[in-house]
Design a protein around this nucleic acid. Sequence first.
RNA 1: GUGGGUAUGGCGCAGUUGGCUAGCGCGCCAGAUUGUGGCUCUGGAGGCCGAGGGUUCGAGUCCCUCUAUCCACC
Length: 375
Amino acid sequence: MYKLITTDGNAKRGEFTTPHGVIQTPVFMNVGTIAAIKGAVSTEDLQTIKTQVQLSNTYHLHVRPGDEIVKKLGGLHKFMVWDKPILTDSGGFQVFSLAGLRKIKEEGVYFNSHIDGRKIFMGPEESMQIQSNLASTIAMAFDECPPATAERSYIQPSVDRTTRWLKRCKDEMARLNSLEDTINKKQMLFGINQGGIFEDIRIEHAKQITELDLDGYAIGGLAVGESHEEMYRIIEATVPYLPQNKPTYLMGVGTPANILEAVERGVDFFDCVYPSRNGRHGHVYTNQGKLNLFNAQYETDDRPIEEGCGCPACKKYSRAYIRHLLKAKEMLGMRFCVLHNLYFYNNMMEEIREAIEEHRFAQYKRRKLEGFNNK
RNA sequence: GUGGGUAUGGCGCAGUUGGCUAGCGCGCCAGAUUGUGGCUCUGGAGGCCGAGGGUUCGAGUCCCUCUAUCCACC
């Protein structure tokens, strides 16, 4: 259940109540694709870096260790020892982003495993069954995510199929939630809006999926090659046609600046691999922009990544030490950077929520963006 | 001491029967990365080819001397 606390322009400050606790929005979900945030990050760490929601992935967990195994062990929450909300992505994106050979049919998608190459079929029902086995808090609909370069003639039939798939997802989820041995019988389902960079297709699709009365709605198929301007234009055009009494989730986005722009346009949920992946690569976020700790200039820099930052890395360790760890390919270096970046994101979301509550979001955003550009 | 091998960017190596601005891997210096394969990709800097002499239109490639180093033997 989504409760709107207050607004500031189009920016929304809300609370989303789930069976695993309340999510304060806007929120950035921390990506742990394989039931772990890469970089040796534990549940204990997540508590210190203000994580509210973890995101895991249907496709990855289906391939390894297998959703049946996770179910036997009591579901994802018990498996990874995390009692707060978990959102599972449907596997739709992975089918299109990393499976090399694939065939899209009305019933679903045939493709090869990226682990051992074996053939896998996944359709709406399979995705729901896997997510039900994983017992996440929120399941995502199984959709097709076409590239930004896709033409209208490809997008329209693809979106129509995604709509048909969404109805099947809803029916299957309802069936699964009613079964006796289902772990989470209150699993929520978010639908996904598609339509590439065509506003009219986006809007029409938004209207159609809104009728299905799901628990939340995502905007998918963005940040896949189009420009920032195009992305903002589509968000601005689409959000008004999604239900305002449900959370809006912008999938896979993005940079801190992307998030500020999207919050301003009414988005509540975000997720992105940037803070964790960039962290593993030594790129760290600060209020003065992004730093690459591999750069030679940090070799003797004994300052923390960011002065005054409350993350476990900045409290004690220097840029020079972390750079050394990174250069030596020591896991601890990655770990510090990932913890810092996730803290940076989670903390920024907290600041955003406060700014909206105090109706000074526009000012907050402007200052933040100015800082990022200082680099 | 004798015989043999090797000397090419920080390290490890390619460089055909001598032919144009000497390559490659790693490292180094930068840059990409948006519902994650700790990956991958893209640029860049850096070498008077151990030293000296010779042959030749032309030598990293052939010849001589020296130096360094490795192996075997005494």
